[in-house]
Design a protein around this nucleic acid. Structure first.
Lengths: 221, 221
DNA sequence: CTATAGTTTTCGGCATGCCGAACTTCCCAG
DNA sequence: CTGGGAAGTTCGGCATGCCGAAAACTATAG
């Protein structure tokens, strides 16, 4: 059997694409997410379909099969538990864990990851607020709203930040925004492509693309 | 640059071959250690030589260059620190860590391994008694004698056991032999291919090949 | 000084996974 | 309905790393 690294990367990319948007996942979407050419993706998706991990309508979209989703979620679980370990145990900054976890997720065994989960106290979320699938493949879903779409004047809690932009993560750390931080949406300025908020006593402006990757929940009273 | 996994495996195999014997390392020795065909090894050793990591006399033996040794020792350091982590933190049995470490050694970054070393308290030896090279590439050398060559009646301390035979490691655990255990060499029976010893109050017989992979030091008085 | 047995290298071939170029297919504008 | 441009696929080619078979080399016995 083939080395599973590539397989896991593709399945995870398909799953991640679906997690952040409901648009159908085409081969070119996948290609841009994976940083590969469309022709490469086309070929490998066909192989994944042959192995029963995805379905693929020619010239259409790619969907995970049950088995494909199982593999994808297992990989996501490994990724997020490793990120949690890097921050909680090894003291990494949350901006620096993504690339390391991207490699380690393919290298750790199931035994390793279950023992690690145990030692970490079976965390339900990683340092960026991403939910960690259980070993059985369950994933809690919570209603969350991108910061870019929060109403003016609303008070919300930051629940989740995409882990793949280290510069944004570092910036958020610098302005005091973390998971669980309560922020008030001071103003939306779509014309300027900016939302303004206050975190504690600090005023912060964020561009819309960044504000789209920050998910919030209604603040606890 | 090529994916480093194969490179690291070859360099580590060359280094390991030298650690346990002074015989010259030929391509066929390497092939059998790596579980590959001699032709594959011949080809890859040539590439390593082109990259300046080894020297290779045609039809002769392979030697690490300074740079090759640096890479090999860095990989050995990762392997042994990972094994220590698996036993000390994740609670693995010492028989089960080798294969997992064999994969992880290629996946962890330098940053990861230095933070891990710090958290583990900069251990000098892994769970099998193998010395851990420092980040600078230094390795303490201690006079050790294979159990197979200890004199009858001598009292010695088990200092080191090869990590690549899980069945032997499990057996040793069962008969109460660990790193630091004091044993007495009761009898050598070369004709039978066996050495007999007592560990605590238990009598243990070991075959010569196994006894050759167990290194001992003179027992502390 | 050979003959030859054993070791090492070379050679052709295979599998994986990637790419760019050329070719299909889709689908909407007109 | 049809013409094109965009999206997707196929094709030939490349790099890595592996193998078995055949050729080349070494070293030892006679």
């Amino acid at each position: 059997m083939a080395g599973p690294t590539v397989t896991e990367d593709y399945l995870k990319a398909i799953w991640n694409a679906r997690e952040w948007s409901d648009d159908p996942v085409t081969n070119s979407v996948l290609a841009s997410r994976l940083g590969l050419s469309p022709s490469s993706v086309s070929e490998l998706v066909r192989k994944l379909a042959d192995r029963g991990l995805v379905t693929h309508a020619r010239y259409g979209s790619v969907e995970l099969t049950d088995e494909g989703r199982r593999v994808a979620l297992a990989t996501v679980r490994k990724h997020r538990l490793v990120e949690t370990f890097l921050v909680d145990y090894l003291g990494y900054d949350w901006a620096d864990v993504h690339d390391e976890a991207e490699v380690l997720e393919h290298a750790v065994s199931d035994t390793f990851i279950e023992r690690l989960a145990e030692k970490l106290g079976h965390p339900t979320h990683d340092p960026h607020g991403d939910p960690i699938p259980t070993a059985a493949g369950d994933l809690p879903t919570v209603a969350q709203v991108p910061l870019a779409q929060v109403d003016e004047g609303a008070v919300v809690t930051v629940a989740r930040v995409s882990d793949d932009d280290p510069d944004l993560l570092r910036h958020l750390r610098e302005v005091g925004i973390d998971i669980g931080t309560t922020v008030t949406l001071a103003a939306r300025r779509p014309a300027a492509g900016v939302v303004e908020l206050t975190a504690g006593d600090q005023a912060v402006a964020l561009g819309l693309p960044a504000a789209e990757t920050i998910l919030t929940e209604v603040a606890q009273p």
